[in-house]
Simulated assay, not measured.
Amino acid sequence: MGGTDGAGALRIAELEREIQELQRANETLKQYVSKALDLGTVPTRRRDDPAQPPGGPGGSPMPGPAPGPVPGPAVEFRVLGPVEAAVGGRWVDLGAPKQRAALVLLVSQAGQPVSVDALVETLWEGRPPQSAITSLHAYIANLRRVLEPHRAPRTPATVLCTRGRGYLLNSRAVEVDAHRFWKSATAGWQALDRGDPQRALHAFQAGLDLWRGEAYAEAATTPHVLPEAVRLEELRLSVIESRCATLIAVGNHEMAVPELVAFTQAHPLREYGCELLSLALYRAGRQADALSVLRVHQKRMVEDLGISPSPALRHLETEILRQAPELDGSQRVPGGGSAGED
């Protein structure tokens, strides 16, 4: 078995092929997420908040200096699971189901105005009673008291604001864990671009640790929240794949294998996950298992979807059959051991 001096001794050249593969996949993922978020060329900042300071309550500061002292957000929302809110560091009661549903929609669109019509449609599923507007105003008033308990009477709200014939959750006054997750994902991809897989692993794991269940759990299927919930879930799956790919790139295929087994069982049609599992098994000295994964996936794609496997998977199968040296990657991997050994 080939020894190592730890992660610090891992040469960038030894990771070149793996990093190129990761960049190929991650570039597609970044383009998808950037398009969905309409973030342009500054993916680490929300489009509605160009001066947003790094970090937030309970989170690690993002790289880069803040331009002078900036007050922290007044309210922290957790939406990567059941929706929760903390005001001044204390969790608060968000009220009755319809009141919570109104807040969930506003949080999912933080920084963007939400019309009264959209709120009414969501709360009453397209069948509002005559009292719907009156009830909605009561919900908004209650939420404002909860989110800004110390606001003086008859002073403008600064967290849940009125915008035309609608309402807006001020993105400068709130911190949302979904936004922190996006920052962590972006930081991980940027670290890979710089050839720093260890920092990428840290960033990916920090983002995944924020998840407590289904995004916007109690309202994930409502029409106005569903696209955001689906986008976040797709991003979560992409980050899991990126983290596992990075583990393989630094030689930690033994850790990647069980994670990828669980992942591909839960998401059997994701080809990149299958590709990663097959590669990790091959590097762990399990060539037969690696081929079995590919062939089971190919059969499922043909029988369930009527489509052929991707060229990447067919190429990987060919390379495994001929035991291509390129699949071994680095001959020196962190933690001892040569690629391909059991």
Rank of each mutant, 00 (worst) to 15 (best):
G2P: 15
T4Y: 11
D5Q: 15
A7N: 03
I12V: 15
R17Q: 09
I19S: 01
Q20P: 08
N26H: 08
K30N: 14
K35Q: 09
T41Q: 13
P43I: 14
Q52E: 15
G55V: 07
G56N: 07
P57A: 08
P65C: 13
P71Q: 06
G72C: 05
V75I: 02
E84K: 11
E84Q: 13
E84P: 08
E84W: 12
A86D: 06
V87I: 10
V87F: 05
G88S: 00
G89D: 10
R90N: 10
W91A: 12
V92D: 02
D93C: 03
A96V: 11
R100D: 04
L106C: 04
S108C: 04
S108P: 07
Q109R: 14
Q109D: 09
A110M: 07
G111H: 03
V114A: 07
V116Y: 12
V116C: 09
T122A: 11
E125T: 10
P128F: 11
S135T: 14
H137F: 11
A141Y: 14
V146Q: 02
A152D: 08
T162R: 12
R165V: 11
Y167P: 00
L168V: 01
R172L: 09
V176E: 07
A178F: 02
R180M: 06
F181C: 05
G188C: 03
H202Y: 14
A203P: 02
E218G: 10
A220L: 07
T222W: 15
H224E: 14
H224R: 15
H224Y: 14
E228Y: 07
A229L: 10
V230P: 06
L232H: 01
E234L: 08
L237F: 06
I240S: 04
A249T: 06
A249V: 02
E254M: 08
E254T: 14
E254R: 13
M255F: 10
L260V: 00
H267V: 12
C274V: 15
L276K: 03
L277Y: 03
A280W: 02
Y282K: 03
R283C: 04
R283L: 01
D289H: 06
A290W: 01
R295D: 14
I307K: 15
S308K: 04
E319Y: 06
E319T: 06
I320T: 02
L321V: 06
Q323S: 15
Q323L: 13
E326C: 12
L327Q: 04
S330D: 11
G335M: 07
E341V: 10
